[in-house]
Amino acid sequence: MSTNLEVHLRSRFDTSFLGDGSEGNRYCTTVVAPVLEEGGIVTFDFEGIEGMTDSFANAAFANLFEKHRGLIGTRLNFKGCSPLIKDFLASALAMARSRETE
């Protein structure tokens, strides 16, 4: 049976500003990716998140998108994103795409 996971980032990382990419990458690799690989649904909730660094966006999300880009909008979902956060996620997606052509 597949698991569904909702990640409230503000609570998970105890901050309104996501900066530590190593922490983000570790979480996405060890917790989020296995759920997706087992057929589950993941929802990232950005409620309460004011901003992030590009280091965090790339370490956490570009790495995730590189493997699971096809699941965005179906089993990999995002909510509570401000326009600024959407920009960060879109550039992380661009980073993931650029790596496919490298």
Binding site: F78, K79, A90, S91
Partner: peptide
């Protein structure tokens, strides 16, 4: 946000407008 968009586009790191809808 606008400043960041300008900077990332200059560096070739910007995301696509058409992808924004993927994130809610």
């Amino acid at each position: 946000q606008q400043l960041r968009r300008d900077v990332l586009n200059q560096l070739g790191l910007g995301g696509s407008e058409s992808d924004l809808g993927l994130f809610g």
